[in-house]
Amino acid sequence: METKDSKRMNRRAFLKALGDGSARLAGASAIAGTVAALAGCGPKHRESTAAAPGEVPTDKMTYRTNPHTGDRVSLLGYGCMRWPTRPRSDGKGDEVDQETVNELVDYAIGHGVNYFDTSPVYVQGLSERSTGIALSRHPRDKYFLATKLSNFSNYTRENSLAMYRRSLEELQTDYFDYYLLHSVGGGTGIPLVRARYFDNGMMDFLLREREAGRVRNLGWSFHGDVRVFDYMLSLDIPWDFV
């Protein structure tokens, strides 16, 4: 398994490392997202039971333990892209059904889920606030929180910084367990990635945020051109997860 000290990792080596299973993370609404080399966040102290090799228990949650931090992350994560909505009382569009969201989060945590993945653009921009309300009712050390820099339509430095800071406020937290560059690989490929995250200085900012502890793990999600995937892995950046 490559570690955060590795400078380069090609796609073949990366995919082989994923198959080794020594540091995996399940996230988003499907069981997705894999830790390549986690760093930064202290261990969570949730009680869990490990299955024997090859065994998949059906009566308890399965966890993956990050060998670098000791984090025990639930194999099944909760994606917050489809929170239930209902018509507003004033007839002006929809709103999140917060009571139902609270019940869903309580049920998930009660059954061992401890990884929650959201974004500023989910549920027409309402997901982070709703997720923050539901999760803030639980101790902060009982769950891992993931969100993204989803600066698709406006990737100026000013707007990107505002989005980052708004995520902290909406999610009622002072740090992110996992923070992702959202959906690299689409559009014009590498030029778009550079415009969204590098040319505007946001990558330097996020690396400083990781040093300060406000981003515990820094990574990215991928949709699109595999050349962008290879490009991201070729950068001299110690990514924590993908």
Results as ranks from 00 to 15, higher is better:
residue 6 S to P: 02
residue 76 L to R: 09
residue 202 M to Q: 06
residue 103 E to H: 11
residue 148 K to G: 00
residue 83 W to T: 01
residue 147 T to V: 10
residue 217 N to G: 05
residue 48 S to Y: 15
residue 180 L to N: 08
residue 6 S to F: 02
residue 206 L to F: 10
residue 39 A to I: 12
residue 132 G to Y: 03
residue 216 R to E: 12
residue 108 A to P: 01
residue 218 L to F: 15
residue 141 D to Y: 07
residue 154 N to Y: 06
residue 199 D to I: 05
residue 102 N to W: 01
residue 71 D to Y: 05
residue 31 I to R: 04
residue 242 V to E: 01
residue 65 T to Y: 02
residue 92 K to A: 14
residue 82 R to C: 04
residue 151 N to V: 11
residue 208 R to E: 15
residue 164 Y to R: 05
residue 62 T to P: 07
residue 69 T to I: 07
residue 87 P to Q: 14
residue 134 A to S: 13
residue 181 L to W: 09
residue 14 F to S: 02
residue 159 N to Y: 14
residue 190 I to Y: 14
residue 90 D to T: 10
residue 33 G to D: 01
residue 237 I to C: 05
residue 7 K to S: 14
residue 96 V to G: 08
residue 48 S to M: 11
residue 124 Q to G: 06
residue 202 M to L: 15
residue 117 D to C: 03
residue 48 S to F: 15
residue 115 Y to C: 04
residue 113 V to I: 14
residue 56 V to Q: 08
residue 61 M to R: 07
residue 53 P to N: 13
residue 105 V to E: 00
residue 87 P to A: 15
residue 234 S to W: 06
residue 138 H to E: 08
residue 144 F to Q: 05
residue 104 L to A: 13
residue 148 K to L: 02
residue 84 P to L: 06
residue 68 H to I: 05
residue 110 G to Y: 03
residue 150 S to Y: 05
residue 231 Y to H: 13
residue 117 D to Q: 02
residue 20 D to H: 13
residue 232 M to G: 02
residue 67 P to Y: 04
residue 188 T to N: 13
residue 212 A to W: 13
residue 11 R to Q: 13
residue 62 T to N: 01
residue 49 T to Y: 12
residue 142 K to R: 14
residue 29 S to P: 00
residue 15 L to C: 09
residue 104 L to W: 09
residue 237 I to N: 01
residue 61 M to W: 06
residue 126 L to V: 09
residue 217 N to W: 05
residue 8 R to K: 13
residue 14 F to K: 02
residue 151 N to I: 03
residue 46 R to S: 08
residue 224 G to E: 02
residue 43 P to M: 10
residue 146 A to V: 03
residue 206 L to A: 01
residue 230 D to K: 07
residue 154 N to I: 03
residue 94 D to Q: 15
residue 130 S to R: 08
residue 88 R to S: 13
residue 8 R to G: 04
residue 179 Y to M: 00
residue 75 L to G: 08
residue 213 G to E: 12
residue 131 T to Y: 02
residue 31 I to D: 06
residue 161 L to A: 02
residue 84 P to I: 07
residue 217 N to L: 09
residue 13 A to D: 15
residue 93 G to D: 12
residue 200 N to L: 11
residue 210 R to C: 11
residue 240 D to Y: 08
residue 214 R to M: 13
residue 86 R to H: 13
residue 186 G to N: 01
residue 50 A to T: 07
residue 17 A to H: 03
residue 201 G to N: 12
residue 166 R to A: 12
residue 91 G to N: 12
residue 88 R to L: 09
residue 110 G to C: 02
residue 5 D to K: 11
residue 20 D to W: 08
residue 133 I to G: 05
residue 36 A to E: 00
residue 174 D to G: 15
residue 20 D to L: 12
residue 199 D to G: 03
residue 123 V to Q: 04
residue 224 G to V: 00
residue 220 W to R: 00
residue 196 R to K: 14
residue 115 Y to K: 04
residue 57 P to T: 07
residue 72 R to N: 14
